[in-house]
């Protein structure tokens, strides 16, 4: 069954695939960083006692969570050049799409983390004379982040998998590079199964690491 397959194509494609993986990792890291920063901001707005602010943040989150990521990628790929008035290339529009989209998911995780820290702690903080922002910054957030590290990392593994969707706008990430070679050399089976194995190993190692961390960091 396997005699028709030419696995040497993987060796020849290797430099190209490594470049693709570089792009995937770059996208993942920037999107995780941006998503967590923006997500934290959204979470703080969402739990704000001032109703209109929490309503706006809540609507943002619900809106993005009800859209498919592909549609969001198309939106920004199409929208950003329209707004700026000149093409900025796939990379930046996809990056903006990822940050905006993932922030909604990170927001929910961070909000749950913040709410897992008991209210009494904020009160105690304000009682010793800290402002609300200081109480958040020095008391609540450090504990909350510790509680939610496993979930944040799990979401980041999902995010890593999600970056493969940039295929739809032709950005050369790991999957797209493999796809280009696969169709050029007509070696679909070899390339697709190879990248599936690579993704599987990376994500499995990631989730095993998360599980170890979870045991270690639970307060």
């Amino acid at each position: 069954m396997f005699k028709d397959f030419d696995w040497a194509v993987i060796g020849r494609a290797l430099p190209f695939l490594v470049d693709g993986m570089g792009m995937t990792l770059q996208l993942t890291v920037i999107a995780i960083f941006g998503g967590i920063c923006f997500g934290t901001l959204l979470a703080l707005l969402r739990i704000s006692p001032f109703r209109p602010i929490s309503f706006v943040a809540g609507s943002y989150v619900n809106f993005f969570r009800s859209m498919p990521l592909i549609l969001v990628i198309f939106w920004f790929y199409f929208l950003v050049p329209q707004i700026i008035g000149r093409p900025i290339g796939g990379f930046y529009s996809v990056l903006i799409a990822f940050v905006m989209f993932e922030a909604a998911y990170y927001c929910e995780i961070i909000r749950a983390g913040i709410q897992s820290v008991t209210r009494g702690q904020i009160m105690a903080g304000t009682a010793i004379g800290l402002s609300y922002i200081q109480a958040m910054r020095y008391i609540v957030l450090p504990q909350a982040f510790r509680n939610m590290i496993p979930v944040l990392l799990t979401q980041s593994i999902i995010m890593f998998q999600d970056t493969s969707l940039v295929y739809v706008v032709g950005l050369r990430d790991f999957l797209t590079s493999a796809d280009l070679i696969a169709t050029r050399d007509n070696r679909l089976v070899e390339l697709y199964s190879t990248i599936a194995v690579v993704y599987f190993i990376l994500c499995l190692l990631g989730s095993l690491a998360v599980r170890r961390l979870q045991r270690k960091y639970t307060i």
Binding site: Q161, A196, Y199, C203
Partner: peptide, 13 residues
């Protein structure tokens, strides 16, 4: 642990 899009290609191709 395999991205959905890769699974889609595996099933299809």
């Amino acid at each position: 642990n395999i991205p959905l899009l890769v699974q889609m290609f595996l099933w299809y191709f």
